[in-house]
Each structure stands twice: as structure tokens, then as C-alpha cells.
Amino acid sequence: MSIDREDVKRIAELARLEIPEDRIERTARELSAVLDYAAALRRLDLEGCEPTVFAGLGAAGPAPLRADALDDVRRLTPETALAAAPEHEDDAFLVPPVVENLNP
């Protein structure tokens, strides 16, 4: 198995996911099955193969840079931007405390 229980807990924390205790073993097994399958790539001769980041752009040239200017079409008013927020106040998204309040 490529991935054990500790790996699952570590990557779950990195991904901000919580895997219930009774699913950790099974998750490790499922992820390992895919990674073991992916090990087939080691049999492939990759000599001279640079990494491909985006396919299909080579022949067409590099992606263009847009002008460094405001794009009015894509500008959202604060009301629109906040319309789908679970909680908001004034012109801001509302979240629980980010840092501990040391001087209450």
C-alpha cells in the first residue's frame, strides 16, 4: 500500500477535510489502489520528455497577456459580490475569528 492511515490524516488536514475514523482505513486502501496503478508510469521511457503544463497552446503560441486595465464587463458591485455569501456585514464577508483575541 502506498498510503497508510497517517498519510490519510496528514493530507486530509492539508486539504481541510475531516475523514471520520471509521473511513480512514478504507480511504487509505482506495487511494493506494489508484497510486499503485499509477506506478505503471515508471515503466514508460520519459527520456527527453519535458513536463507538459498546458496542452494545445504550443502551436498557437504562448497565452496572451491582457491589458493592465479595469475590465468593466467583469466588475461586480459589492452588493452583487456579496449576494451569495452565507453571511455578510456592510461591504464584507463575515467569518468566525481568524486569530485568537489576546486582549478581550
Partner: peptide, 11 residues
């Protein structure tokens, strides 16, 4: 994993 996969993608 990731870098190997990107090189395999070129192949």
C-alpha cells in the same frame, strides 16, 4: 507523482 505525470503527458 505530479512531475512524472506531466512528463508522461508529453510522451
Amino acid at each position: 507523482y505530479y512531475l512524472t505525470a506531466q512528463r508522461a503527458r508529453t510522451r
